[in-house]
Design a protein around this nucleic acid. Structure first.
Length: 206
DNA sequence: TTCAAGATTTCCT
DNA sequence: GGAAATCTTGAAA
């Protein structure tokens, strides 16, 4: 059995679990981005699971496979980064196996390293620290994540990855499940409890 | 070929 | 509280 050490890059096996399980287990882990040798990082406090073919809210609903969403079909641990509303990027982690188009959207992190650089990247709109990464597009801007990183394997040598901070269920605060944000169009899937976040954490979106 | 709407955020009223 | 910014995608024409 491999030893699951802390502060090490999450491996392939972590991401090959069920997508909802990964979404919950990612809460409390650390997202890391390195830019020109400098570490920008934060604790994941909010995620959403997208379940693929049957999920009307997923980009891969009904087997859709386009240039944009190709990374969602990759093996667990690959980054799926897309442009939404023609201007904002969103970061997801592909889960499951190659050919299984499911992913976890990273919606918010609590910034812990490189806040000075994040403020520059975010600009005027980020008046307080809780404005830096409290939304899927905000955290991408704060970490300089865009389509150039789409499809990278975060379990290998890359400038973006997730570090393990815990092997047990998160103990710092309670995790709650609610409906996903911005998917009112998804019929019965709009109401499913596939959004997870830390109760009372000020860095959660909205 | 044209069109409407989206896994969002920001700024103005 | 509401509108604008603006690329991708699927459906309509």
């Amino acid at each position: 059995m491999p030893v699951r050490q802390l502060n090490h890059r999450l491996s392939r096996s972590f991401f090959r679990k069920k997508v909802t399980e990964v979404a919950v287990d990612l809460i409390g882990q650390r997202l890391v981005r390195v830019i020109r040798g400098k570490r920008l990082a934060g604790i994941i406090v909010e995620t959403e699971a997208y379940l693929g073919l049957p999920d009307q809210a997923a980009h891969t609903f009904n087997g859709r496979h386009t240039e944009r969403n190709h990374s969602m079909w990759l093996d667990g641990g690959h980054a799926y980064i897309y442009l939404t509303y023609g201007m904002h990027h969103c970061l997801n982690m592909a889960t499951g196996r190659e050919g299984e188009p499911v992913a976890v959207l990273l919606r918010a992190i609590e910034p812990t390293e490189g806040l000075d650089r994040m403020r520059k990247l975010r600009g005027q709109a980020a008046r307080q620290d809780k404005d830096l990464c409290s939304g899927p597009a905000k955290l991408c801007q704060a970490l300089a994540v865009d389509r150039r990183l789409d499809g990278i394997d975060t379990t290998q040598n890359s400038s973006l990855w997730i570090e393990r901070l815990r092997t047990q269920p998160y103990a710092g605060s309670k995790i709650i499940a609610t409906a996903r944000v911005g998917v009112d169009y998804a019929g019965p899937w709009a109401h499913k409890l596939l959004r997870f976040y830390l109760v009372n954490n000020p860095h959660v979106s909205r």
